[in-house]
Design a protein around this nucleic acid. Structure first.
Lengths: 206, 206
DNA sequence: AACGTAACTTACGCACCCGTAGCTTACGCG
DNA sequence: CGCGTAAGCTACGGGTGCGTAAGTTACGTT
C-alpha cells in the first residue's frame, strides 16, 4: 500500500495510517510484549518519537490497531449471518471468518496473540475471546429464539467460534484445501454433527 | 504442596520440583515474555542463580514445564478415547479435557498463552495447537477407518479440539455450569450437530 | 571437631527498551 | 525571497531483566 514510497515527508494523517499498517504487521509477528517501538519506527523508515507523537506510545498504537481490527472482523461476520436460513447462516459465518483469515493474515495473527495484561482485566488469553463474545451474542439470540436451552446458548456460541478460529489457525500454516472447502466441512460438522457427516459435502457458494 | 515450608534448604531434586510448580504458576499468569526469572525465584523464596543452576535459564525452565504439561494432557485425553463406541469416545474426550481445565487451571493457562518465538519455528500461536496436532492424530485414524474423506480428517480433528479448548477458556472465567453439563452439550453438538440438538441433553456419566 | 561439598547469596555487567527533551530540516505562503 | 510551522531527528535518562562471578553458610561424614 505504501510500498513504493521513497522515504518522503508525509502529512500527519498519511503517516498515521502507515504506522497503523506497519504496527499491525509487527505486532502480528511478535505479539505485544515482544514487539519494540523501535522496530515499528524502523520499518516505517521513521524515528521513534514520531510514533509517540501520533499515538502516545506503544499501548496507544496497539489499542488503535486492535480496535480497528476487531470492529472489522465482527462487522464482517455479523453481516454474513444477517440473512438466510439457519443453516445458511452457519455456512456463511464460517466462510466469512475463514475468508478473513485468508485475506488478512496479519490481522488474524494479531487477534490470536496474547493481549497485554492491562487489556483484559481478568485473565483474557487472547482477543479472539472477545470476538467470540461479541459474535456469540448474535448467535445466542438465534439459539434462544429457536427454542434451545438458554443456559446452553453461550456454550454453543463459543463452541462454534472455537471451531472456526482453531481451524483458521491451522489453515494459516497448512493452506492446503481452499477456504470454501474448509468452510463447507466446518458448516457440515456444526450443522449435521459427526453422526450424519456426508462423505463429500457440497461446496458452499461464495 | 510446599506451602508449609519454612524457608529451608532443600535437596536438589525437591527444589527442582518446587521451581517447576512455582514456574508453572507464574508463566501461567503472565505468559512467557512478561514473566521474569526474579519473580519465580522470589515466590520460591530463593535467589535467582538457583534457577540458572537447575534449568540453565528462563527458556530451560519453560521448556521443562511445557513438556511435562503437554505430555500430561495428551496422555489423559488419549486414554479417554481409547475405548467405547464412537459417540462415547467423543463424550469422554470432551469431559477429560474440561476436567483438566477445571483441575489444572494453571496448566491450561500456560498452554493457552503465547509460546516464545523460538519454540514453534513458524508462527505457532499457542501450545494448544500442538496439543490439537497430537490428539488430532488419534482422531484422524478413527475418521479414516470410519470411511470419511481423508483430506477432511484434520479439519474435523482441529474443529473438535478447537470447540473444546475455546469453551474451556470461556468456562475458566464463567465457571457457571458444571463441567459434566458443558461436556455433554459439546458432545451433543459434535455428534448430532445443530440440526438435531436436543432441548436438554442427558448428563454424561463421569 | 575439622573438612569437603552441596545449597545458596550478594553484587554486578550488559543489553534492551520505553518515553522525552531539545534541536534541525523541509515546505508552503505572502 | 524569507519566514513560520509542520515533520522529523539525535541523544539521553530511567528502569528492568537476563545471566554470571565470586564469595558465604549449612550439613553430613569421618
Amino acid at each position: 500500500m505504501f510500498a513504493a514510497m521513497t522515504s518522503q515527508r508525509l502529512p500527519a494523517s498519511a503517516r498515521r495510517a502507515q504506522l497503523i499498517e506497519v504496527g499491525r504487521a509487527v505486532f502480528a509477528k511478535h505479539g505485544y510484549e515482544a514487539t519494540s517501538v523501535e522496530e515499528i519506527a524502523e520499518r516505517a523508515k521513521v524515528s521513534k518519537p514520531i510514533v509517540y507523537e501520533h499515538f502516545g506510545g506503544k499501548e496507544g498504537l496497539y489499542a488503535v490497531i486492535v480496535d480497528r481490527e476487531m470492529d472489522y472482523v465482527v462487522r464482517r461476520i455479523a453481516e454474513s449471518i444477517a440473512t438466510g436460513t439457519p443453516r445458511e447462516r452457519v455456512e456463511k459465518a464460517a466462510l466469512a471468518f475463514l475468508t478473513y483469515v485468508k485475506d488478512h493474515p496479519d490481522g488474524f495473527a494479531l487477534l490470536a496473540h496474547d493481549a497485554p495484561q492491562a487489556s483484559g482485566r481478568g485473565g483474557m488469553a487472547s482477543l479472539l475471546n472477545e470476538v467470540a463474545e461479541r459474535v456469540g451474542d448474535v448467535f445466542a439470540a438465534s439459539f434462544k429464539s429457536a427454542g434451545y436451552d438458554a443456559r446452553a446458548a453461550p456454550i454453543y456460541a463459543h463452541a462454534l467460534i472455537g471451531m472456526v478460529t482453531f481451524v483458521g489457525q491451522w489453515w494459516t500454516e497448512a493452506r492446503k484445501p481452499p477456504v470454501e472447502e474448509v468452510a463447507s466441512h466446518i458448516a457440515a460438522l456444526a450443522w449435521m454433527g459427526l453422526r450424519h457427516l456426508p462423505k463429500r459435502p457440497a461446496r458452499v457458494k461464495g
